[in-house]
Simulated assay, not measured.
Amino acid sequence: MADNKQSFQAGQAAGRAEEKSNVLMDKVKDAATAAGATAQTAGQKISETAGGAVNLVKEKTGMNK
């Protein structure tokens, strides 16, 4: 009987560990997705700023005409 009880408890512990690991992996995936979105937004802002700077230089140097 003790062997069955120990096996059952071991199975419960393994199930809890697996669930905790799944929750942690979900959090990691969410953080990675958020970081990717943030990086993409930052890249777009940099690109827009650089484009504006190029246009300003063209305008000031008369290359825009």
Rank of each mutant, 00 (worst) to 15 (best):
A39Y: 10
G15C: 06
S47M: 03
N22E: 04
A32L: 11
K65G: 08
G52M: 04
A39W: 03
E18C: 03
A10L: 08
E18T: 09
G52C: 01
G51V: 05
G62H: 02
Q12M: 13
L56I: 06
I46S: 13
G11Y: 08
E48P: 01
D30M: 08
M63L: 15
M63N: 07
D30A: 14
G43E: 12
Q12G: 01
E18M: 07
A17M: 05
N22F: 01
G51H: 08
T49V: 12
V57L: 14
M63G: 05
D26Y: 00
F8W: 12
K65P: 05
D3H: 03
Q6P: 00
A2L: 11
G62Y: 02
V28L: 11
T49Y: 00
A50Y: 06
A31G: 03
N64W: 00
K60E: 04
K60R: 13
S21I: 01
T61L: 12
N55H: 10
T61M: 09
Q9E: 09
R16Q: 12
G36W: 01
N4T: 06
T41N: 08
A53H: 10
A14V: 01
Q40W: 02
V28C: 05
A14P: 00
K65D: 12
G43P: 01
A42D: 15
Q44E: 12
D3R: 15
K60W: 02
V23W: 04
G43M: 03
D30V: 09
D3E: 11
D30Y: 05
K27I: 08
A13Q: 13
A53I: 14
Q9Y: 11
A37I: 11
D26N: 09
N64K: 07
A10S: 10
Q12E: 10
Q44S: 06
T41V: 04
G36M: 07
A37T: 13
G62C: 04
Q6R: 15
A13T: 04
A14K: 13
G52N: 14
N64C: 01
M25V: 03
V28A: 06
S7K: 15
K65V: 13
N4G: 00
V57Q: 05
K27N: 10
K20N: 14
A42E: 14
G52D: 08
K29C: 01
N55T: 09
T61H: 05
G15Q: 11
Q9M: 14
F8D: 00
A32P: 00
T41D: 13
I46A: 14
N55D: 05
Q6F: 12
G11P: 00
A53Q: 08
V57F: 09
N55R: 15
K29I: 12
N22V: 02
V23R: 15
T38P: 00
A39E: 15
G11T: 03
F8Q: 11
M1L: 09
A13R: 14
V54E: 03
K27Q: 12
Q12R: 12
A14R: 11
